[in-house]
Simulated assay, not measured.
Amino acid sequence: MPLEIQIGDIIDTKKPHPCGNNRFEVLRIGMDFRIKCIKCEKQIWISRANLEKRIRKIERQGTLLKPEDIKK
């Protein structure tokens, strides 16, 4: 089952962006996701499968969620 990720969520990833940051904002959802690095504001397109493997935690409107808590 896919994770329930919403636009505006802040995602912490296991692997950092080349700028050194590992926090991203979700801008677009679907089969491919568009995420934006919080530090350098670079936008990245990534497939759902790759993104779900790399997620460490998700912050939704100030609430911290772990991937196992948000499975559909």
Rank of each mutant, 00 (worst) to 15 (best):
I44R: 03
G8N: 07
L3H: 01
C40L: 05
E25Y: 03
R54A: 05
K53C: 08
I44V: 15
Q61S: 14
K66L: 15
P2V: 13
T63V: 08
Q43D: 11
K15N: 10
Q61H: 14
D9H: 04
D9A: 14
D12L: 11
C37I: 01
R28F: 11
L27S: 01
C40A: 05
E59T: 13
N50F: 12
K57Q: 10
G8V: 09
R23S: 06
K71P: 15
K57F: 10
W45A: 05
P16H: 06
K53V: 11
I58E: 09
C19I: 06
R56V: 12
C40M: 03
I46H: 04
L64C: 14
Q6S: 10
P2S: 08
P16F: 10
R54N: 12
L64V: 15
D9N: 10
L65C: 07
K15F: 08
D12N: 09
Q6N: 15
L65S: 00
G62Y: 02
L64W: 08
C40F: 06
K53T: 12
I11Y: 07
E59S: 10
A49R: 07
I38H: 00
K15V: 15
I35E: 00
I11V: 12
C19E: 02
L65I: 06
I35M: 02
K53Q: 12
L64M: 13
S47W: 08
R23V: 08
K72C: 14
K39I: 02
I10D: 02
F24Q: 00
T63R: 07
D12S: 15
E59M: 08
R23Y: 07
N21Y: 04
M1I: 12
F33G: 00
I44N: 05
P2G: 06
L51C: 03
G62D: 04
L27P: 01
I29T: 06
K71G: 15
M1R: 15
R28V: 08
E59V: 09
R48N: 09
M31G: 13
E68V: 09
T63M: 07
T13V: 06
E41C: 06
K66A: 14
G20V: 04
N22L: 04
D9P: 08
K42N: 12
C37W: 00
R48K: 15
K36T: 01
N21K: 07
R56H: 14
G30N: 10
Q6L: 13
H17T: 07
L64T: 15
E68H: 15
L3M: 04
D32P: 03
G30R: 03
L3E: 03
K72F: 08
K42F: 13
T13K: 07
P16M: 06
I10M: 04
I7H: 03
F24G: 00
F33R: 02
I38C: 04
C19V: 05
R54W: 15
K39Y: 01
D9T: 12
R34V: 11
T63W: 11
L65H: 11
K71S: 14
R48P: 02
